[in-house]
Amino acid sequence: MKDNRLISVQDLKVYFRSNATTARAVDGVTFEVDREETVCLVGESGCGKTVTALSILGLVPVPPGDIAGGRILFKGQGLLDLDDNNMQSIRGNHIAMVFQEPLTSLNPVFTIGDQISEAISIHKNIDTGTQRERCVQLLRDVGIAAPEQRLNDYPHQLSGGQRQRVMIAMALACDPELIIADEPTTALDVTVQDQILRLFKYIQKTRAMSILYITHDLGVVTHIADRVYVMYSGVIAEQGFTSQIFNHAKHPYTRGLLASLPSRSKRGKRLYSIPGSVPDPAHKPEGCPFHPRCPHAIPSCWSEYPQMCDYGEGHLARCPVLFEKTKKTIDDK
């Protein structure tokens, strides 16, 4: 079982320090991605999803960023202890990343052929002719028509969806084991979003790789995820298989998120919204970070940091209050 684990992040803490304050952007995150698995990291903007992803690749700018603690094990190898050279041979080669804004994430002065083949030439020892063939094949795989001609185009000549496909092709260039996709569809039109999601699913199936998909959109999660981690204010609030999360959510935050999803059964009714907003990472509340917005909060939530409660079958939630209540109902029965 252990060798099936691709990457595991253990109690990761990433702080951003300025001389007055310390923003605890990621505050003890633990999660795993197995081989050939699609895992979703869900949360509102500002909850630390992107920083988590960047720290896996060692791309958090230091300073002001600071990896304050924790471990990241990739195939048993601690990524945080690697020096620059070894980290470079992991980036793009074993772990690749697709960013949110395809327009700004592609270098405007190089052709897309240059940018795709660059990663190949760095990590794989193959001649330029083969590189070119490989680029064409990659572009075809991600669904770009007439790839031979597109190779010599500059990013500004492509549409938004095409650019994101190019980004994906770049990420696939060296056949990585893990692709981290950081909200890859947020900047795109809804119709294009759907195509890109299908593309991810297709890639995941045909190439047998793992995907860590970061999003704030629960609708996307149902489409793509095997397992889901719900993040809130720099910590994992709830984790489990997609069906567990969607059908038996055990954390008030997850419940709130689900309740605020529009759906057919709620037609004509007022949509729920979670009161308040995500706390500022530099000024988090004491105790449970969610307590100011929580409908179930009891006085102990103000002072005690909540522990993960195990519901079995890989379903965990960081809310002792609800855990006690469920236990009681089970006991009563």
């Binding site: 690749l57 791309l59 050279n85 470079q88 041979s89 992991i90 980036r91 793009g92 080669n93 690749a96 990343m97 960013f99 994430s105 592609l106 270098n107 660059e118 990663a119 760095i122 990590h123 980004m167 770049m170």
Partner: peptide, 9 residues
């Protein structure tokens, strides 16, 4: 950032 994520030196 993209270039660094590709693993360029």
């Amino acid at each position: 950032r993209t270039a660094r994520a590709k693993g360029l030196p």
